[in-house]
Simulated scan of single mutants.
Amino acid sequence: MGAMTATVESSVDSFHVPVIDITAYTANGDPADRAVVAAQIDDAASSVGFMQIVGHQVPAVVLDEFTAVMDDFFALPLEEKKAYRTPPEINRGYAPPKSESLSLSLGVESAGRMNDFFEAFNVGVEAREYPALALPDDHYADNTWPSVDHFQAAVSAYFAEARRVARTLTRIFADALDLPPEFFDAYTDHSLDVLRMNNYALPPGEVDIDGELTGMGEHTDYGIATVLWADQVKGLQVLDHHGNWHDVAPADGALLINLGDLMARWTNERWMSTLHRVKPPIVDGTIERRRSAAYFHDGNIDATISTLPSCVGAGSRYSPITVGEHIGAKLAGSRAGQSNPYAQRDAARVRQAMVRGRGQQ
């Protein structure tokens, strides 16, 4: 089957997030069709850092059951949800509104208030899945499962599908970067993956809506790639090269994909880890409901990420770093309010974005 490409237009005609059909990889297409897809991925990764994929073959019934139990959980009373909180260093369980600041993951001191207006629930890969490896319990922590009917089964089913999609993407990435087909396997065979379910609407009276409202602050994602399911509700905004913010909503049946900081490091910024944020719409003083679920494919905690030889060029912009060092510093920023010491380039980028994007608020 040949590859299909479309575009999602923003308010500025020159900005678009390409929609790419990856059926050539999910249905064993021929090499010529795969080469077309890999070229499209390379172009999107180099120019936007975001893309949308169709042909991913995630069953509709899996998505329907997953979103239903996500709704059931977020409909619980706030105090009941808070029973599933974990310490900041454990990236699991429930995060209530205004308990995080994603901008701090970039080391931006002025964004230090923990005021991101979203609630979330996280699950991830557990150490017990790899009994032969001595994986750290804090990063590969046991999941906390709420007492919601079918929640664990439905979330686990979607987790498995998102993991499959992420691994398919790394296979495409290898082709796009002229690497051996299995190149990324050694870096992802016990990948530190997390699924974060987000909700941006709360019943009236639970929070005060005053001043600047941040759904999710300006940030880049941390790892290799993010597989995002989202409502077709405005809120997600992506920064372009000129410092303008653009609304991006998924096309019918599409999953949004964006690259993380580790991929930008690997490729020496040939591929982009693009700044994005969520600005939930306010209608008559209340927030319009919006949901999303981000599967973060982050790589093995003990893997060292160094610039690919084919991307070094005149010199590498980044020193080698392990996945564990990188992710740990990012989470210490967003969840515990600690500035990220490894994010000098990222911090400069977000400060520039804040200045350029101020007129787009």
Results as ranks from 00 to 15, higher is better:
1 M>K: 09
141 A>K: 11
139 H>I: 10
22 I>F: 04
358 R>M: 08
316 S>T: 15
230 A>S: 15
166 A>H: 08
36 V>L: 11
344 Q>E: 15
21 D>G: 03
177 L>V: 06
55 G>I: 11
91 N>S: 13
194 V>Y: 07
344 Q>H: 11
305 I>T: 05
359 G>N: 15
124 G>I: 13
140 Y>P: 08
230 A>V: 09
65 E>L: 00
220 T>C: 10
317 R>L: 14
91 N>K: 15
152 Q>T: 04
88 P>S: 10
227 V>R: 04
39 A>V: 01
189 D>C: 02
258 N>P: 04
95 A>P: 00
263 M>D: 04
333 G>W: 11
254 A>K: 07
346 D>A: 14
115 N>I: 15
287 I>L: 12
267 T>D: 07
17 V>S: 09
121 F>R: 13
12 V>W: 02
210 D>H: 07
80 E>N: 00
360 Q>D: 13
23 T>R: 15
254 A>I: 01
48 V>W: 00
120 A>R: 03
33 D>E: 14
227 V>Q: 02
212 E>L: 12
357 G>M: 10
60 A>G: 07
246 H>L: 13
268 N>A: 08
243 G>D: 09
157 A>E: 09
219 H>K: 08
43 D>A: 13
340 N>G: 04
54 V>C: 01
144 T>M: 07
317 R>V: 03
124 G>R: 05
218 E>Y: 14
22 I>T: 05
126 E>D: 14
200 Y>D: 07
106 L>I: 00
67 T>M: 13
37 V>T: 12
331 L>P: 08
187 Y>P: 00
28 N>P: 02
322 T>G: 13
156 S>Y: 06
296 F>T: 07
181 P>W: 00
130 Y>Q: 09
15 F>G: 09
